[in-house]
């Protein structure tokens, strides 16, 4: 098997184009820069109804899921809460949200101390790339949360490629509807 001719740089040394140029960034789910995890309005309203408040303190709960899914059809996810699960101190409820989905609520578990382990695994459906949020309510009433950004990519072609065309169409139809209404009014 003829080796690659030497004039062309063998690419075993140069992996990933320019990777060497910068320290390999470890992936840390973006820590919430602010003191609280703020959910989009639709989801925080649901949380408000369920937990009585939508103010989540970052921490205690973590989301274990791949950072990239080829299709959003069935993505494995594990909610884990750092809790001794004793009578005095245990998790009462865990909820998961995916704002990108038509139905935002991914999971809603009521658990008690007898569960023994504050950890729940499931598979969720994701419509597109974006943040997944997790919220936990503890027996002492405190609310904890985290968020995780996942890339769902079946291909660039799958993003709604016609977004600009539908927008132009909508603008045209609105303009004309207005013109017709104005003409009718005269």
């Amino acid at each position: 098997m003829a080796m690659i001719d030497s004039t062309r740089r063998s690419f075993v040394t140069r992996i990933g184009g320019g990777a060497g140029a910068m320290a390999l960034l470890t992936v840390v789910p973006h820590p919430a820069s602010a003191e609280t995890i703020d959910l989009p309005e639709r989801e925080s309203a649901i949380l408000e109804a369920a937990f009585g408040s939508s103010v989540l303190t970052p921490g205690k709960i973590s989301l274990d899921m791949p950072i990239l899914a080829e299709t959003g059809l069935s993505v494995p996810v594990t909610f884990k809460v750092d809790s001794p699960m004793t009578e005095a101190d245990h998790v009462t409820r865990i909820m998961g949200f995916a704002p990108g989905n038509p139905e935002p609520v991914l999971a809603d578990y009521q658990i008690g101390p007898r569960a023994g382990l504050a950890e729940v695994s499931t598979r969720i459906r994701l419509a597109r790339t974006g943040f997944v949020y997790a919220a936990a309510k503890l027996s002492d009433g405190t609310l904890w949360g985290t968020k995780f950004s996942i890339i769902v990519t079946l291909g660039a072609c799958v993003e709604d490629i016609f977004d600009l065309d539908w927008q132009r169409d909508a603008e045209r139809r609105a303009m004309r509807a207005e013109a017709r209404a104005a003409a009718a009014a005269e």
Binding site: H30, I151, T153, G155, A156, C157, E159, I161
Partner: peptide, 15 residues
């Protein structure tokens, strides 16, 4: 902040 560094690496939709 939750966009990837190169934002979009697919080629399609004349985009």
């Amino acid at each position: 902040e939750d966009h990837q560094v190169y934002r979009r690496m697919g080629t399609g939709g004349s985009g």
